[in-house]
Design a protein around this nucleic acid. Structure first.
Lengths: 351, 351
DNA sequence: AGGTACCGTGGGAGCGCTCCCACAAGTGAT
DNA sequence: ATCACTTGTGGGAGCGCTCCCACGGTACCT
């Protein structure tokens, strides 16, 4: 192990002090320049910047964090209890948006897995120790205690997909209601009359909103909502198969299915095929997410696209704002910030 | 901004000093206990541990990093120049392995995007400033300067997929050669004689190894390798379409295709369909990666699965070892560590 | 002229830890 | 009894930074 003194002063990383000496100014002044304080004369600033460039100075994050009591890091918490949650585009697209928004800042992105109980335990410690300035929460379930822990610790946090209509945390979401509406309206426009819906997990707020959108689109078009045509799913393929089987048994006359996710649609497709129904001739099929599966399905699946990358970007924007305000939205009282982004229907051969 | 003095000593996070006072020992002793030094008596250790538990003490990472000149963080560098590289299972599975291996340690995982030039610039600064203890490199191209930069800075690093047979960095890879062999042997066993290969990007070492495996499997089975049956692809769907079109024009008598990736196979499938070839009756198709697309393709695609999660785990193991050795493999001279993991052929209806 | 601002600046104190030296107490050889 | 070690321990110094106070200088008022 490198001893204390052995730490390479042999041309090693320069310190603030060295930059100050080089520029012929004091330590404080260099600090001000580095941190963009306006209270520095132009001449001094230029001299310091030159010294910084010559020495290739890069601030020591640890020292800064220690002195300033902040970390310049935000955590992306990946629940990942039901494994490989991020296999689908959702995660990677969001990550791309997050990365893009972050690249304009000095913030680091920490990936924290909170699948097992032990990992959640560690996460709680992490947060309690204030090792991050803010937290990004994705795909949180209604009964997850994490958001409340964050609120209690007064750690800025943004959640993707509010847990309910009363979500207190700042949230970014896509318009699940509108997305579902557009899917159903599309099917109606195609002349379908018996449109079924395979829902997502009912404890997920977004799934509820999609059901709402389904219902109201039908109602607004003058259709009667037949509860027999609604069957609970869970976003999975297997759930799609089960739901589709039940739906076919109950309503053999259905002529369209709107599934709450692409994988669910894939499961439904399989059952429809086995039952001898042609897609889209006999039954039109629409999914949700516009994932890779949708493009590669046979026939290619009409699906609702969410602007996930944009969601990632907005989450970061909001989080940085909260961090700058140094106080979570709840304790500021008043305005809960909820951003809802529009979806887009991507038409393909399945409908 | 919270002033210096305003920092809540109002029951806020306890410090080493406070734990020491509580346990009736010195600061150094607590430090030793926290860091698992053996030079502490059992009685003292117990007392300190009790105090830690009572106070809910969590070490301050920043202070530790500053004093010890290490960061307890490793970076996962995501090149992501050719966008959404991590949309497919590859990335998420690897992340899962990485996360699993990391959850046994105190290490943090930093996600760093190095797509744009600006981001790469920043990354170089990062590394130069030694803000991470080690680096995980995934999907690096043959001409990437990053590995050399890491070697020069003497930062421990592990690469997934060596850049060449002479890779100097510690690497973890799946057996591309063996995977390709198993795919081709499978096709031969199915009675196929005119087996084509759509390659991956030729500047990727793994793609070369797959070509080697393809060639030698044929040769060992007594077939003649017809160079006409090999067509360059680039791992993409569009590349698969182009390559398949050319192959069909050149060798209309082919009866099997081994594609270097599942998406490539998807592109090939489309062209085969349009040409009226049935899969698998007329042309058998095998992909690589065993991604979601393979399972959902019509017909489901036979594919070569790589133990990606395991790869992630091994990468972390190796990296932690190097960090513990506090010196990158190259400067230790001698043993370059290269781990190669076995693949598995997943048979489905396409072959 | 003196007073009162403010601006730009230097540098002390301190963030919470690790490293190491010093030292007391114990152990065994001489 | 002395001398050497060893073992466990306490606490000083210092990691590189930010925050803030104090100070000299200039500008503008009375």
């Amino acid at each position: 192990m490198a001893g204390h003194g052995a730490r390479g002063r042999s041309g090693g990383r320069p310190t603030l002090e060295e930059v100050a000496a080089r520029a012929g100014v004091g330590r404080g002044t260099v600090s001000r320049v580095i941190n963009g304080s306006p209270r520095v004369s132009d001449a001094t600033r230029a001299a310091v910047e030159a010294a910084v460039a010559e020495l290739g100075y890069v601030p020591n994050t640890a020292a800064r964090a220690l002195a300033a009591n902040r970390t310049d890091a935000i955590a992306l918490v990946v629940p990942e209890p039901e494994t490989r949650f991020f296999a689908e585009p959702y995660f990677s697209d969001m990550l791309r948006g997050v990365g893009a928004a972050l690249s304009d800042t000095e913030m680091q992105l920490l990936l924290i897995f909170a699948g097992s109980d032990r990992e959640r335990q560690r996460l709680a410690q992490y947060l309690a120790a204030h090792r991050v300035d803010g937290v990004l929460l994705v795909s949180v379930h209604a009964d997850d205690p994490l958001p409340d822990l964050l609120a209690q610790l007064e750690i800025p946090a943004v959640i993707s997909g509010p847990r309910s209509a009363e979500e207190t945390l700042t949230s970014v979401d896509s318009d699940n209601y509108g997305g579902a509406r557009s899917a159903v309206e599309h099917l109606i426009a195609r002349g379908r009359h018996r449109i079924a819906h395979i829902t997502g997990r009912l404890d997920v707020y977004g799934a509820q909103r999609r059901i709402d959108g389904y219902r109201e689109a039908l109602r607004d078009a003058g259709h009667v909502v037949d509860e027999q045509l609604i069957e609970a799913g869970d976003f999975t393929e297997e759930g799609g198969r089960r739901a589709m089987t039940r739906l076919l048994a109950r309503c053999p006359d259905l002529d369209a299915v709107f599934a709450a996710s692409d994988v669910t649609a894939a499961g439904a497709r399989q059952v429809l095929r086995e039952a001898g129904r042609r897609i889209p001739e006999d039954v039109a099929l629409v999914g949700y997410d516009d994932s890779a599966i949708a493009r590669h399905m046979d026939p290619p699946l009409t699906s609702v696209r969410q602007p996930i990358e944009e969601m990632g970007r907005r989450m970061i924007d909001l989080l940085l704002t909260e961090i700058a305000d140094r106080r979570p939205a709840v304790s500021r009282g008043l305005e809960r910030r909820q951003v809802v982004l529009a979806t887009e229907l991507v038409g393909r051969a399945s409908s």
